[in-house]
Amino acid sequence: MKITVRQIVIAGILGAIAILLGWPVLGALPIGFIPVPNISGHATIMHIPAILGGVLEGPIVGILVGGIFGFASFYMATTISPNPFFSDPLVAILPRLFIGLISYLVYTATKKINNSVALIFAGIFGSFTNTIFVLGMIHLTGKGNFLAWLIQVLPQAIVEAVIAAIIALIIGKAIDVYRGSRGVKAK
């Protein structure tokens, strides 16, 4: 497997955005958290760089950004904003690798219909991949029952999917325009 310089750098910088969106700021919610009446109190947009990485730069970048996001989530859950369920790398990192991959697959499958529709679908599916795979891993590592968890996080999952669809569409389009102006070829 060969990774080009371009893939390394773009994955790194999108990973930096994912970390930045969830990093705790004293006395305030991180920028990437949007309040939702739910068990955790907020929906996150931290997974969106992974979705965009998969959609805009291909599956490898998507997987790498997902990995960085997963690591950041694992580190934060164990240290600065504790959450016992994400302090397990099997729950925090492993499922996140699939976000970019599945968004990429959905995007390439629906691209023929319309670019905007494909971006929306990629956002929705990427977001649900995050929810379902994390809950599945929580179930597999014996930290809870899948259904009981799903009932609790369903409002958050739906809100996250809607937000991911909106942001993936807006930023996907914006970066397409930017690339057009720079003459960078899209993958």
Binding site: M1, K2, I3, Q7, I8, V9, A11, G12, I13, G15, A16, I17, A18, I19, L20, W23, I31, L64, G67, I68, F71
Partner: peptide, 25 residues
């Protein structure tokens, strides 16, 4: 043929750019 070095490089770039992007934000 596992791209270990490249993966580490991605992590290094990510953590290097967090402060820069925080300033930008």
């Amino acid at each position: 043929k596992f791209p270990s070095h490249e993966i580490i490089m991605v992590g290094v770039i990510a953590f290097r750019f967090v402060p820069t992007l925080i300033e930008e934000l």
